[in-house]
Amino acid sequence: MTQVLDELVALLSLETIEENLFRGVSQDLGFRQLFGGQVIGQSLSAASQTVEAERQVHSMHGYFLRPGDATLPVVYQVDRVRDGGSFSTRRVLAIQKGRPIFSCSASFQLPEEGFEHQIAMPEVPGPEGLLSEQELSRQNIYLLPEGVRERMDFDMPIEIRPVNPTDALKPEPCEPCKYLWFRADGTLPDNPALHKYLVGYATDFGLLTTSLLPHGASFWQRSMQIASLDHSLWFHRDVRADEWLLYAMDSPWAGNGRGFARGSIFNRAGQLVASVAQEGLIRHRADWA
């Protein structure tokens, strides 16, 4: 693994404080608050560590309650709600400064045979030859906010290559659809749970901002207040986070200061490996301009 990927794996591994109680360090990605993908991935990690390895997470539903502080660790409290014959359910509370910042429920299942069907993978160009988000950002790095500019000078653990990139600094209205390829930048151990933590971490990149595309708005505009409110994630099969995955996103609705987006994640074989949905705050704040 590369050093930055090794650091991300360590970040998602968590420290056991006491039974059902874990602590994770935080990373600063240059956003206004703690990156939501971090608490998603760490919550999945905390819940998974209380379930027998044969039972794999298949769904997670969470709410972002308060902005997190990227300079402080996060404590995760796990409630072992139920262990049935096939399914296990866990509730997780992420805490900073004695107050909850994120809560979620996660469900785990033993492997089982059954009916199978899926939607077709979109026909889009593969990742080969596409520029990464970092490479695209570095073309206009002097225009980026200072905190983000610094991050663009470092390698990232998750490589993201947009299929249909837009100019985040001068956005033009377009259809609310987005496609990007992503993978962990290095080879990971054969630990199925770890690959799911990492995919969970990555699903918060770019999802909510899909709802801004029809409005010619961008995350980097100072007048935009953008924050995830909830996040739902379903895993349909085992996945390797260190192999290219296509993230196909669309936003069917926005209104009342909120945007809704959903995503489908496919592997290179065209198999649907995960589905995602998220609603978030997308306020235009003239007083911030």
Score class of each variant (00 low, 15 high):
166 T>W: 08
280 G>H: 05
204 D>C: 14
193 A>H: 11
233 L>Y: 13
157 P>W: 04
152 M>S: 06
261 A>P: 10
207 L>Y: 07
102 F>V: 14
143 L>S: 07
261 A>W: 02
213 L>G: 06
217 A>H: 12
31 F>V: 02
19 E>S: 15
212 L>E: 13
48 S>I: 00
148 V>A: 06
110 L>Y: 02
104 C>G: 02
243 E>D: 11
244 W>M: 12
14 L>G: 13
193 A>Q: 11
168 A>V: 12
7 E>Y: 04
175 E>M: 14
122 P>N: 10
174 C>I: 07
76 Y>C: 00
161 R>T: 07
128 E>Q: 12
58 H>N: 14
50 T>D: 07
260 F>G: 01
139 Q>L: 12
214 P>G: 14
202 A>Q: 03
95 I>G: 04
154 F>R: 12
192 P>Y: 03
188 L>S: 00
175 E>Q: 14
236 H>T: 00
10 A>C: 03
207 L>A: 08
239 V>H: 05
147 G>Q: 13
36 G>W: 02
73 P>E: 10
83 D>F: 09
171 P>S: 04
83 D>C: 08
273 V>D: 08
155 D>P: 04
9 V>L: 09
267 N>P: 01
97 K>T: 11
250 D>N: 04
199 V>C: 15
276 V>M: 13
61 H>L: 03
279 E>R: 15
106 A>T: 14
199 V>N: 09
209 T>D: 10
140 N>K: 13
36 G>V: 01
207 L>F: 05
157 P>G: 00
41 G>Q: 07
60 M>Y: 11
264 S>L: 10
111 P>A: 13
35 F>K: 02
176 P>V: 06
187 T>L: 11
16 T>Y: 01
94 A>S: 04
28 D>V: 08
279 E>N: 15
112 E>V: 00
227 A>Q: 10
16 T>P: 01
144 L>M: 03
231 H>K: 11
166 T>R: 08
183 R>H: 09
99 R>M: 05
200 G>F: 05
205 F>G: 05
80 R>K: 14
272 L>C: 02
146 E>C: 06
75 V>S: 03
197 Y>L: 09
131 L>S: 11
259 G>C: 01
1 M>E: 03
198 L>I: 15
222 R>K: 15
148 V>S: 00
12 L>P: 06
11 L>H: 13
157 P>F: 12
159 E>G: 09
152 M>P: 02
33 Q>Y: 15
219 F>D: 01
18 E>V: 00
16 T>S: 12
155 D>I: 01
75 V>R: 04
112 E>F: 13
162 P>M: 02
255 G>C: 02
23 R>H: 03
167 D>W: 00
110 L>C: 08
257 G>L: 05
253 W>P: 00
119 I>R: 03
1 M>F: 13
66 R>Y: 07
180 L>Q: 14
98 G>S: 05
250 D>I: 05
191 N>D: 11
67 P>A: 06
68 G>D: 04
254 A>Y: 11
227 A>E: 03
159 E>M: 14
34 L>D: 01
174 C>G: 11
228 S>M: 05
247 Y>I: 06
66 R>E: 05
65 L>D: 06
266 F>D: 12
3 Q>M: 06
8 L>I: 09
30 G>H: 12
168 A>D: 10
195 H>S: 08
22 F>L: 04
168 A>H: 07
268 R>T: 11
71 T>R: 12
63 Y>C: 00
182 F>Q: 03
193 A>E: 04
236 H>S: 04
17 I>G: 00
201 Y>A: 03
51 V>D: 01
272 L>F: 10
